[in-house]
């Protein structure tokens, strides 16, 4: 029962917050609504037993990504010297497309047909041998990341370095 209540509260925050992000007129308020959405999503992660991911979400998403966005808002308002008021165009088209996408996904979610196709494999996953006795989310997460997902892990580190260098190169002021 507790999970049901928590889910609906979080879902409400997510939906209302998201609507505020896409319809609000004040960019800064949109950013704050986004923060609420991100925190609620972290709550959903905890509901699903992904504690480590929830902390990653709070630290990186709310802590870093959102701060960058808010910084961008304030900096741009500072440069232009005026408050940015948001406008929405093509509301009809946007609404139609969004409804269509939602209907499609909701249909998938309700029918759930074929969703269980691949999960009946009876063979034991070899990675389980490494996870013998692992009892916490963080240990399992780290073990998987450094064994099975070692290549994407290393690749992501190069990726982040390059994204940082690139961002510095285009954002720095001319000498």
């Amino acid at each position: 029962m507790g999970e049901v209540i928590a889910f609906y509260i979080l879902a409400l925050i997510i939906v209302l917050g998201a609507l505020a992000v896409v319809t609000g007129r004040n960019l800064f308020h949109c950013g704050l609504s986004l923060a609420a959405v991100l925190l609620a999503v972290a709550g959903l992660f905890i509901l699903n037993g992904a504690e480590f991911l929830a902390w990653v979400q709070v630290l990186i998403y709310v802590g870093a990504v959102l701060v960058i966005i808010l910084y961008a808002i304030m900096l741009s308002e500072n440069i232009t010297g005026e408050r940015i008021l948001l406008i929405s165009q093509n509301r009809g088209v946007g609404f139609a497309a969004a409804t269509l996408v939602f209907a499609l996904i909701a249909f998938l979610g309700i029918s759930l047909s074929g969703l269980l196709a691949g999960h009946t494999s009876s063979v034991k996953d070899p990675v389980l041998a490494l996870l013998e006795g692992a009892d916490s989310n963080v240990i399992v997460f780290g073990t998987l990341l450094l064994t099975r997902y070692i290549l994407p892990f290393e690749f992501a580190s190069v990726f982040l370095v390059i994204a940082l260098i690139g961002a510095l190169v285009i954002a720095r002021t001319a000498e």
């Binding site: 939906v15 946007g94 939602f102 499609l104 996904i105 909701a106």
Partner: peptide, 8 residues
């Protein structure tokens, strides 16, 4: 799906 549609 709802969140994704709102994003779109």
């Amino acid at each position: 799906g709802l969140l994704f549609a709102i994003g779109i």
